[in-house]
């Protein structure tokens, strides 16, 4: 029954997303980083703010893997975060928020509540 209570934000068209990279989605006052990991055919969404220095930058980070765990590296100081769990992979305690993503009819939706 969760489907009915989830609030899905229509973020963009699939072709507007960047292959193997990120874009930033505006959601009211919030910013969400949306990643299209084309090589793995996976979509991820996280908060756009890097908690390390509070910079709105994660969508501009490089994505990749560490021992097959998908991750993003912040462009500021290369702090690494798991795209799956949001956990910081650079030894720090800070974690980032992650959001479920779905694709329907060529539109990318992010679960925002």
């Amino acid at each position: 029954m969760t489907e009915t209570t989830t609030n899905w934000l229509a973020a963009c068209r699939v072709e507007d997303a960047v292959e193997n990279g990120g874009v930033c989605v505006k959601y009211g006052e919030e910013q969400i980083a949306l990643f299209y990991f084309t090589r793995r055919n996976e979509w991820y969404a996280t908060q756009n703010e890097c908690p390390h220095k509070k910079q709105m930058a994660l969508s501009r980070g490089m994505i990749g893997t560490i021992t097959d765990e998908p991750k993003v590296a912040c462009p500021f100081h290369k702090m690494n975060f798991s795209l799956k769990t949001g956990e910081c992979l650079s030894g720090d305690e800070c974690a980032i928020k992650t959001y479920p993503v779905k694709i329907e009819d060529g539109t990318v939706y992010i679960a925002v509540n």
């Binding site: 193997n20 990991f37 090589r39 793995r40 980070g61 490089m62 994505i63 990749g64 893997t65 560490i66 097959d68 998908p70 991750k71 590296a73 290369k78 690494n80």
Partner: peptide, 19 residues
């Protein structure tokens, strides 16, 4: 980059090998 990774690398790259 993708061709190089497919040909000579493994998994999906990172911020070290990409640049």
């Amino acid at each position: 980059y993708d061709d190089v990774l497919n040909e000579f690398g493994q998994s999906d790259g990172c911020e070290v090998c990409k640049p």
